[in-house]
Amino acid sequence: METPIVQPTQPKVATRRNIDRFLEATGKTEKDYFDWATEVGRRMHINKLDALVCAKLELYTVAHLANRPTEIPEGMPETEMDEHLVANSENPYELACLWQRVTVNAENWVSKETILNEWLTGISKEDFERWGDKNHLGDINKKWWNKDAAALDVKLEEINSMSLLNQPLTFEDAIDFIKCHKPGSYVNPAQLLIKRIEERFKAVTTFRIKDYYVSHLMKMCHLVPASEELADLPF
């Protein structure tokens, strides 16, 4: 009977992790590695999104989106163009430009409603009856009622002292706002438009709009200078 041959045990070689190779090659920190890895993952994701757009719209590169503007009817007022693009554009770059611009508008939107939405959070029933019409008490959202709320005249004086508008807010402004909205629920027109742009973008591309993908489209189509290019793998 033959004696079985015993194979020598191969010593295990420890697998080096990417992070270890990165730290050794660059001398940077673990935070630097995770920042770098996040950027690598994001760029891979952007490449996949580009592929989806190109396949769906039959493009060689998303840079060609700059040459596919939506036709604007002759004589259309400038004030109607945004609505026209939201309803008709099939161009992700065009929608991304619109989304970026309207997002800035939404963040900087200042009106009676936005100010009251931020600073007026409650009112006592007694105060409402004093400055409004008690016959409308039943129409007011119950979340407004707060027996410990600051008096409306005091609150308006505080708001007006900040000079957020070029004209002071009145008791009528406050009462009308309370009658029409729930506390903190007001959405300005630019925010409503953003939602519609996002819905249109998803319908055109099949995926949700992302700020980093908007920046990518700007770079590809609008020749925005890129920030630092991703460093080559250090290993």
Rank of each mutant, 00 (worst) to 15 (best):
L120Q: 02
L120S: 00
S124V: 03
S124H: 06
K125Q: 11
E126W: 08
F128P: 00
E129T: 15
E129V: 13
E129A: 15
E129Q: 15
R130H: 12
R130F: 12
W131G: 09
D133T: 06
L137V: 05
G138S: 15
I140Q: 07
N141F: 10
K143S: 12
K143W: 11
K143I: 04
W145C: 00
K147D: 15
K147L: 11
D148W: 11
A150N: 09
A151T: 08
L152C: 02
D153H: 11
D153W: 09
V154M: 11
K155D: 07
E158I: 10
I159T: 05
L164C: 05
Q167N: 10
Q167M: 11
Q167W: 11
P168V: 01
P168W: 05
D173S: 03
I175Y: 05
D176A: 10
D176N: 14
D176L: 09
F177E: 00
K179C: 07
C180N: 14
H181W: 14
K182I: 04
K182C: 07
P183W: 05
G184W: 00
S185W: 05
S185L: 04
Y186Q: 02
Y186R: 02
V187F: 11
V187L: 14
V187P: 05
N188E: 04
N188P: 02
P189L: 00
